[in-house]
C-alpha cells in the first residue's frame, strides 16, 4: 500500500495537467486514509476521509476554476531552488525520525508518560469510551481550540480575498443541475440521509470514531451537494451566507465561552470538572458543548468556503 502511495506521489509530481493532478490527489488521500485504518488510527482515518479526500479535492477544484488548468512553465533555475528546499526539509524530517522510536515500540517515550495516563485514567476521569475524543477535547483542549480558530481564520481569509457574495451575483447565476433528472432524484433521496449521518457522527464522538471535525465536514458536504445539484440560489435560500458566517463565529464563541464559564466557576480555562456537580458530569457536558462548537464552526466555515469559491467570478 505504501508502494501505491509512492507511485501516486511521483505521478502527481510529473503531471502537467493540474486537473489530473487534483484527481490523483484524491486517490492519494483515499490511500493514506486506508493506511491509517491499517495502523488502527480510526479517528485520523475518519478525518482524512472526510477532509482530505472530499473537501480538499472540491476546494482545489474551486481554486482551479479561478486560475488556469495548465501548469505554467517554470524557469529551470527555480527548479533547483525548489528541489533543494524539498531535499533539505525531507532530510530534516528523516533526521527527526531517526530519534523517534520504532513503530509500536513499547518503550517509546510517548508510551511511557502521557499515554498510560490518557489510556488508563480517561475512563475514570472523563467517563467516555473513545479515548481520542477525551484527549482531543479535554486533555488537549487548548490545541483543539487553536485548530478550530485556524479553520475559522482560513474561512475568513478566503472570504476576505474573494469577497463576500453579493446578493445580486447569486441571483444572476441561478442554475444548477436540476434538469439532470437522475442526479436530482438521487440527491433528493440521499440528502436527508447524509444530514442524519452527520448528526450521528457529531453526537457519537464519545463512543466511536467521530466528533465535531468530521461531523462538520459531512454536514457541509450535504450542503455542497445540494448547492451543486440545485444551484447557488437554492442553497443560499436554505442557508443564507450571512447566517452561515454568523454560525461559524458562534461555534468558536461556544468553545471559548465554555472555557470562560469554567474560569468563572473557579476552575482553570477549559477545565470542565467544575461544570457539573460531579467532575465526570462536568467533563461530559464540557466535551459535548465543545464538540458542538467545533462541529458548528467547521460546517459553517466549509460551507462559506464553498460559497466563496462557487460564486466568485474572475474578471475576464
Amino acid at each position: 500500500m505504501l508502494g501505491l502511495l509512492t507511485v501516486t506521489a511521483i505521478a502527481i509530481a510529473r503531471m502537467d495537467q493540474l486537473f489530473a493532478a487534483v484527481m490523483l490527489f484524491g486517490i492519494y488521500s483515499l490511500l493514506s486514509a486506508a493506511l491509517f485504518v491499517v495502523m488502527d488510527a480510526v479517528d485520523v482515518a475518519f478525518t482524512e476521509a472526510a477532509v482530505g479526500a472530499g473537501i480538499a479535492t472540491i476546494l482545489m477544484l474551486g481554486a482551479l476554476a479561478l486560475t488556469s488548468r495548465e501548469q505554467h512553465a517554470v524557469p529551470r533555475s527555480r527548479h533547483w531552488i525548489a528541489l533543494s528546499v524539498v531535499v533539505i526539509t525531507g532530510a530534516a524530517l528523516i533526521y527527526g525520525t531517526l530519534d523517534m522510536p520504532l513503530y509500536a515500540d513499547p518503550n517509546a517515550p510517548a508510551h511511557l508518560h502521557v499515554v498510560p495516563r490518557y489510556l488508563q485514567q480517561s475512563m475514570q476521569e472523563i467517563g467516555i469510551p473513545n479515548v481520542v475524543t477525551s484527549v482531543l477535547a479535554s486533555y488537549r483542549g487548548y490545541d483543539t481550540l487553536g485548530e478550530t480558530v485556524v479553520i475559522f481564520t482560513a474561512a475568513v481569509g478566503v472570504i476576505g480575498r474573494l469577497g463576500i457574495v453579493p446578493e445580486g451575483v447569486v441571483e444572476s447565476k441561478t442554475g444548477g443541475m436540476e434538469h439532470h433528472l437522475i442526479l436530482r432524484i438521487t440527491a433528493k433521496l440521499m440528502l436527508p440521509l447524509i444530514l442524519l449521518f452527520a448528526l450521528y457522527v457529531q453526537f457519537h464522538g464519545d463512543f466511536g470514531p467521530g466528533g465535531g471535525f468530521q461531523a462538520g465536514v459531512i454536514f457541509a458536504s450535504a450542503f455542497i451537494l445540494y448547492g451543486l445539484v440545485f444551484g447557488m440560489r437554492s442553497v443560499t435560500r436554505v442557508a443564507p451566507s450571512i447566517v452561515v458566517r454568523t454560525l461559524a463565529a458562534a461555534g468558536v464563541l461556544i468553545y471559548g465561552g465554555v472555557g470562560v464559564i469554567s474560569l468563572l466557576l473557579g476552575g482553570n480555562y477549559l477545565d470542565y470538572n467544575v461544570l457539573g456537580d460531579q467532575p465526570k458530569d462536568g467533563q461530559h457536558l464540557g466535551i459535548f458543548l465543545v464538540e458542538f462548537g467545533v462541529g458548528m464552526t467547521v460546517a459553517a466555515s466549509m460551507i462559506s468556503l464553498f460559497y466563496a469559491y462557487a460564486s466568485y467570478k474572475r474578471e475576464e
Partner: peptide, 17 residues
C-alpha cells in the same frame, strides 16, 4: 432538525421520498 432542513431544501416530496 433533518426534516426541517429537508423541508427547507424542498426535497421532501414524492421524488425525494
Amino acid at each position: 432538525f433533518v426534516v426541517w432542513i429537508a423541508r427547507r431544501q424542498d426535497v421532501v416530496d414524492h421524488e425525494g421520498h
